[in-house]
Amino acid sequence: MTEEGKQKFRIRRDLLLILGLLILSALLWLALGLMPRGGVAVVTVDGAQFGRYPLSRDRQVVIPGYDGGENLLVIAEGAARVTEADCPDKLCIGFGAISRQHESIVCLPHRVVITIEGGEESGVDLP
């Protein structure tokens, strides 16, 4: 086959690859969207659990980070989000609101991880 012919096939495969990846991500996204809404936001700081907060109760929690920084966790309308942080990149705010199981928010500099877990929980084990 000529080099030109080969190149034509390569570009066709490129397009198939791009299409395939977009379809795959759409399917994965759909799978995440179909996840049941979670019941609790679990907060860990540097691997240790800091607290569990039911999404059913609106509240604001200041999370002290690993290096002395702070993230403000706001639970409202059944979703959790970080609205304020004193880290330089503020990427934790960029995660937006999370409410589905397995969704998470991460603040790398403060080693804070917020993950949504399932199940309705009573307020018994709240700190």
Partner: peptide, 29 residues
């Protein structure tokens, strides 16, 4: 990130990045 933070749930963030990574790859390519 999932490894360092010991949070496998972080992998669920990947679908979003799969879209942005594909589009960025098209532009860069």
């Amino acid at each position: 990130a999932a490894l360092l933070l010991e949070t496998p749930a972080l992998l669920w963030y990947y679908p979003l990045l799969l879209v942005s990574g594909t589009l960025a790859g098209v532009f860069i390519g």
